[in-house]
Design a protein around this nucleic acid. Structure first.
Lengths: 160, 160
DNA sequence: ATAATAATAGTCAGGAATGGTCAAATAATG
DNA sequence: CATTATTTGACCATTCCTGACTATTATTAT
């Protein structure tokens, strides 16, 4: 039970808000000055304590009237499966293995056929083709185009 | 909901009109003075919130009796718009624009909320982060992990 | 007709108000 | 001592708002 660092306090404060409202919409500079820390520490707290794995979705906007919104989302029942899957995937995975995972998710009815198709489109070799100077945006575009194209078809099996 | 921006209010106002009529035909200066902003802010609102990737088509005329007409286009049954969207994506697209497209697809019920979340996970900045020596398999892994993580959650809106 | 004028809308660049990233310094922990 | 977590600050990116200047269209005067 060691503690009392400021990040923990900020975490507590935000979770307090979340225990009452569906989401916490804050102004970064406001929270920073409330706790007398630099604004970027708010990002640190969010990045380390309000991650997807922990069940939080964060969205933000800059500029005038900017904000950071933290939302808590419900976990599905058996989250262990996903943890194992993610462990298995690790840092790198080939197209075949990835396709098998998607097929397994489909077989177990974790995802619908449409959803499986979307996932297959996203990880398709063509979508992810990387050359030296390719940018993040370029890859993203390919991924998105692949997925959008997939939506044209009602239901088609494409992975495996 | 912190709706502090005038631009947000103008956006709301226009969408209000669009929820009742097929299109919103406005006089720029009239809207500008109604919200006490300079006329060009109306262009700003339109350019940032009523773009093709948002699912809107805008046309206008200058001079006496000039107007701006905003029309909502439905992606469900408009194959041509679909093609234009893919054209728009092109070879490279940023996270925000990509997110807007996904939101538009969701709004027009082309995809379900779950599907939209999957797509958002696929194009997420973290999934697609590219460094020099990253391989295709590495990116694929990140994409897939991102999507699987998204499946943990029941149903939540995440893009915007 | 043509030219001038009025009435629109469009573009662009800049300033202000946010939030984001990254790496260095420091503290805590094993 | 080594590793990990926290804290900080310099620098970056995005969003909003404004105003000067430009472009287009309609109307009016000649």
């Amino acid at each position: 039970m060691a503690e009392a660092n400021i990040s923990d306090l900020i975490e507590q404060y935000l979770k307090e808000i979340l225990s009452q409202d569906d989401f916490a919409e804050i102004k970064r500079s406001e929270i920073a000055s409330r706790f007398a820390v630099v604004p970027s520490q708010i990002n640190y707290v969010i990045n380390t304590r309000f991650t997807l794995q922990n069940g939080y979705v964060v969205e933000s906007k800059r500029g005038g009237g900017g904000y950071i919104r933290i939302e808590h989302v419900d976990l599905v029942d058996d989250t262990k499966i996903f943890d194992e899957l993610i462990d298995y995937i690790g840092d790198s995975i080939g197209e075949n293995n990835a396709g098998q995972i998607i097929t397994a998710l489909l077989n177990d009815k974790v995802v619908s056929e449409r959803e499986a198709n979307l996932m297959a489109a996203a990880i398709d070799k063509n979508s992810l083709r990387i050359s030296d100077k390719v940018s993040e945006n370029t890859v993203r575009a390919r991924v998105l185009v692949g997925m959008v194209n997939r939506l044209r078809f009602e239901s088609t099996n494409t992975h495996g």
